[in-house]
């Protein structure tokens, strides 16, 4: 908030909308804000509803009886659950650290007007935003050439560089780092890396937070890489655990007549809707807890990064 904005919190309503209008604003914004979180609360409630209640009154904000069955089923996954929780965190943290490091290192020279090759490197990253080789060739390169198969690398490396984030980061440098600062540091005899780490990075913290959050989100919500490159259950992230339940159900739905009666058992052993709701809660909870803390930086970061991007 700027100091000018703070003035408005004073006791008298100088140049402000009438109280009546403001109440209408509160109503509209409040309702929309509520609508943004109510579905999540609803899913939490459903995950704690008993099967009986669901049969009688359906999904409801006030179930007739509560139950921990869904969570018992989830905990029955035992090691698999905690393992994939760990994997999700590990992949997200490792991926974000690496990715942000590479992003900053790439974006910084791009912002330096005195760097001769910036035109070339800008194009190099930008071009890949539009053209790609498609699934099969990428798969071959990643798996056969780079050995990404059943390891954490397969879940981290293919998402390391995002040209979009590079642009955000570059713009951030452009808008918040005065060029004189670099010149001054250079005159003081500071090396390029020292300048970047000691002088520049402290200024662009909000930009880093923004890129970090966007990257972390990408890793946290990712499941397709796991489908492509990983068959070992020890490596499944949480999002894929949910996706697999979904995909199993979908596949059986499409092919049940082909699989015939022997598929009936498979369908019977599919996780119940409430259990899937409980898994959803597990996935969303860390996001819901973590992001309010990031938010301050991200709001600042997004504004500067995207406005100009």
């Amino acid at each position: 908030m700027t100091t000018a904005a703070k003035k408005n919190t004073g006791a008298f309503r100088l140049n402000m909308v009438s109280r009546k209008t403001e109440s209408v604003f509160h109503l509209i914004l409040g309702l929309f804000a509520l609508a943004c979180i109510i579905p999540f609360i609803f899913v939490i409630i459903i995950s704690f509803s008993s099967e009986n209640s669901i049969r009688q009154i359906g999904y409801s904000f006030v179930p007739s009886s509560w139950s921990l069955d869904a969570y018992r089923q989830v905990f029955n996954l035992g090691d698999a659950l905690w393992r994939s929780y760990f994997n999700s965190f590990f992949i997200t943290i490792a991926g974000t650290v690496l990715s942000v490091t590479m992003c900053v290192l790439y974006a910084y020279p791009l912002f330096r007007k005195d760097y001769k090759l910036r035109g070339f490197f800008s194009f190099l990253s930008f071009f890949t935003m539009i053209f790609g080789g498609g699934l099969i060739p990428t798969y071959i390169v990643c798996k056969n050439l780079l050995g990404m198969s059943n390891n954490y690398a397969a879940l981290i490396v293919p998402m390391l560089v995002s040209p979009f984030n590079i642009i955000i980061m570059r713009t951030f440098f452009q808008t918040s780092v005065p060029f004189d600062l670099i010149e001054a540091a250079t005159i003081d005899g500071s090396g390029e890396y020292t300048t970047l780490v000691r002088v520049i990075l402290p200024i662009v913290k909000p930009g880093i937070a923004t890129v970090a959050l966007l990257t972390a989100l990408g890793y946290w919500n990712e499941w397709f890489l796991c489908l492509l490159y990983v068959t070992k259950r020890d490596l499944y992230p949480l999002q894929y655990l949910l996706m697999e339940m979904q995909r199993n159900a979908e596949f059986l739905a499409r092919n049940s007549s082909m699989i015939g009666a022997s598929g009936a058992q498979a369908v019977a052993s599919l996780p119940s809707q409430t259990m899937r709701m409980a898994v959803v809660v597990f996935i969303v909870l860390p996001i819901a807890c973590a992001y309010p803390f990031f938010q301050r930086y991200v709001v600042a970061g997004l504004t500067i990064g995207s406005v100009k991007g």
């Binding site: 099969i136 798969y139 489908l227 068959t231 697999e244 995909r247 199993n248 979908e250 596949f251 059986l252």
Partner: peptide, 12 residues
Amino acid sequence: GTWGNFDQLAQD
């Protein structure tokens, strides 16, 4: 392979 991932694995 599971029901959910077999098609993708085999096709790839």
